[in-house]
Design a protein around this nucleic acid. Structure first.
Lengths: 179, 179
DNA sequence: CCCAATTGATCAAACCTTTGATGATTCCGA
DNA sequence: TCGGAATCATCAAAGGTTTGATCAATTGGG
């Protein structure tokens, strides 16, 4: 990889993946270019979707994306232990702890000590929490629909299948998981 | 959606998407369940991959994931204006500004005023910056390979195609973009 | 029964991100 | 040419994330 290559003048968000993969392939013969392309593309597509959902739906309603995920999980699955909430919403216990401070301060959730294990925390939504999710989720799902329309129904299924297969492979890949 | 449903006792990271989609479909007939499943799955798969890359490759080497992305872009495309760096690495100009403070303090990049436009900032890697990326990228790409092995080659291509089609649809979806 | 190991939660420090405001430069039309 | 508008970067405040440490409650082997 040369040190002082000038960037192509038309380098843009859309062209960067192709540019990066081609250049890496050219200059580093040992690189796994297809894997690189897959991870780059996956990362970009997801951050576009999430940024859109967060900035157009949730922030205007006073929720962050992580905050929404937690309220959403509690809405769907009902009151549960904080440990479970952390696991199913894909965050560490420490991150949830910090996030709960905001949600509790805003009156959306309630923290209670569990009865059978006084170390554990029981989480539940307040009425305000239900209110926050009721309006928010419809708008959220409408935007999900708008995104999904880019694909044909069978393409959506195939995308989900491939993503699930990718995740299932994490065991083989010996991936590191959130603790 | 009932208020006090008890969560199934076996609710886990892996079962949550199915559980959420089925329950939402059952209780909210108007929901677009397939769109919901697609976005949930996309989000999970990506955060697993990124978490693994960041925690197993980059943090042990002293880089965060956003830090890696910026160094990576500068390594591939050479010195460029900060505005371009922000765009191709998918972050806002303000976020890059904050990130550059860390990278500059750690001696990985150099900030210089552009000559033809004294508002603009020219970014380039230091020798330490090159050093950081050289070792890091190989380890990074090896983990990308490990993830990619979960799919057959044609499945990888199909996944990339579908993700690109999804992103291309963002115009139709009138998605909100990072400014 | 008791103490060491484990588990659940929080804290602390460092970092990155968002939105909105502020300053400095440059551009462009009257 | 002059002055308002657009552009580039940074700052400020509020939030969420990470890793590693700390503290309390519970569990289990001797």
């Amino acid at each position: 990889m040369t040190h002082n290559t000038a960037p192509p003048s038309d380098l843009t968000f859309w062209s960067f993946v192709d540019y990066a993969v081609q250049k890496a392939e050219r200059e580093l013969p040992s690189v796994d270019a297809e894997a690189m392309r897959m991870v780059l593309t996956l990362n970009r597509a997801t951050s576009m979707v999430i940024y859109d959902l967060e900035s157009s739906v949730h922030r205007p309603r006073g929720l962050t994306w992580p905050g929404f995920r937690v309220i959403f999980a509690l809405w769907l699955a009902g009151p549960m232990e904080a440990k479970t909430t952390a696991e199913i919403s894909g965050m560490s216990r420490a991150a949830l702890s910090a996030l709960l401070n905001t949600l509790e301060r805003d009156g959306l959730i309630v923290r209670e000590r569990s009865e059978h294990d006084r170390r554990a925390l029981q989480l539940s939504l307040t009425e305000a929490g239900y209110g926050a999710i009721l309006g928010g989720f419809r708008a959220h799902n409408r935007r999900e629909s708008a995104w999904a329309e880019a694909l044909e129904p069978d393409e959506r299924h195939e995308l989900v299948r491939l993503l699930n297969k990718l995740m299932a492979g994490s065991t083989t890949a010996r991936a590191k998981f959130r603790s």
